[in-house]
Design a protein around this nucleic acid. Structure first.
Length: 356
DNA sequence: TAGGCCATCTGGTCCT
DNA sequence: AGGACCAGATGGCCTA
């Protein structure tokens, strides 16, 4: 996949040529994601670019000559801090090489972050490959989703209730709220559509998590038409069918849809849906923290194990001894959004999920 | 065209 | 020294 080229002004080629750089094939640093324009690497051309600063000193061949403050003027204010060493050619080259490597790492890091966000999007109540939630909306919805699910567990509120939808939509933008509301209204009037073609199980199978999924879609009046308003069926199905569901967790890689499998350690919220509970005994696979988008299974598990709501704050179940430090799992998603105080339910569950 | 969102570059800070 | 992480800056793309 080739991402869009950098939109930055300034072509490093000039700088490279001025330095005597060979045109490097930078693709080795970042795979196919290396941005190129016309085969040339582009970098920012900010006014403070060290490249430009350095280029002025390039003529200097003296090695590491210290600048004498006051050489250029008796009134010149003395600079504080470490004296800047002159950018010799060698130093400049090292600097650039470092910078390019750092840029590649940073790109890679951000791609990883985006991949994680994509994984998060996939477990949201409404997921569309074509109309992605923005990053901020994804986080907001995730927070609300956790909150709403905890309410389902704690108060027995129906996931089909108006309140559930309201919780999900709290603080979301209008379009996202419409999307979520539209998706969840499906719960009472599902329509069969082979939406699962783009989900797990391949075209027509509709198999999600070992169950026969009922692909849902929502042609909501006044709402953006699908796929904007498409629904990840498994969520609602599990929300609706918390009782008596036999669940076999598929491999995390089974739901790839052509996207890279998610094989890294899961962040706690994502792991709500892991097969944490149905295998009391740690298996060799437990360390992989299998992941499937069926968050409501947590509810299923907890309810089937008769965890009273009162115990959620200090989980008294068989695995309560494995609770993780609360500080680590206290929903950082809250962040700068409006005040949000979910029960400790989810936090407590995390300890269970991750018991090893 | 303004505003939202995004990808990227960059320099600073902290840590190993 | 080098990597991870972060926040600010910048510019492109898209949509209302």
């Amino acid at each position: 996949m080739m991402t869009k080229p950098y939109g930055k002004p300034g072509d490093v080629t000039e700088l490279v040529s001025s330095l005597g750089w060979m045109e490097e094939d930078l693709s080795s640093q970042d795979g196919d994601r290396t941005p190129e324009i016309g085969g040339r690497y582009r970098i920012s051309g900010g006014s403070r670019s060290p490249m430009e600063l350095g280029s002025e000193d390039m003529e200097e061949e003296e090695e590491d000559e210290e600048e004498e403050a006051g050489l250029d003027g008796e009134k010149a204010p003395k600079r504080r801090g470490p004296k800047k060493k002159k950018m010799t050619k060698a130093r400049l080259e090292r600097f650039r090489a470092r910078r390019i490597k750092a840029n590649a790492r940073e790109r890679s890091r951000m791609h990883g972050l985006n991949d994680a966000l994509d994984n998060l999007r996939r477990v949201m109540p409404c997921y569309s490959k074509t109309q992605k939630l923005s990053k901020i909306e994804t986080l907001r919805l995730a927070r609300n989703y956790i909150w709403a699910l905890s309410e389902v567990l704690e108060s027995g509120q129906s996931p089909e209730s108006h309140g559930f939808v309201e919780m999900l939509c709290k603080g979301l933008s209008q379009p996202t709220s419409n999307l979520v509301a539209g998706c969840l209204q499906l719960g009472s009037s599902p329509m069969l559509l082979n939406k699962m073609d783009e989900k797990c199980g391949g075209p027509g199978t509709g198999v999600v998590g070992g169950q026969q999924a009922h692909p849902l879609s929502y042609p909501s009046p006044g709402l953006p038409s699908p796929p904007y308003g498409s629904l990840e069926a498994s969520h609602l199905l599990h929300l609706k069918g918390l009782k008596g569901t036999t669940y076999e967790n598929p491999s995390p890689n089974e739901c790839s849809n052509g996207t890279p499998p998610y094989d890294g350690p899961l962040t706690p919220p994502l792991s709500i849906s892991g097969n944490f509970a149905l295998k009391p005994e740690p298996s060799p696979h437990d360390t992989e923290r299998n992941f499937t988008p069926h968050s409501a299974l947590t509810a299923h598990y907890l309810s089937s194990h008769h965890y009273p709501p009162s115990s959620m704050g200090g989980l008294q179940g068989p695995q309560s001894h494995t609770l993780f430090p609360a500080s680590r799992y206290e929903l950082p998603l809250d962040m700068a959004f409006e005040s949000f105080t979910p029960s400790h339910l989810v936090t407590s569950q995390m300890g269970t999920i991750y018991s090893e």
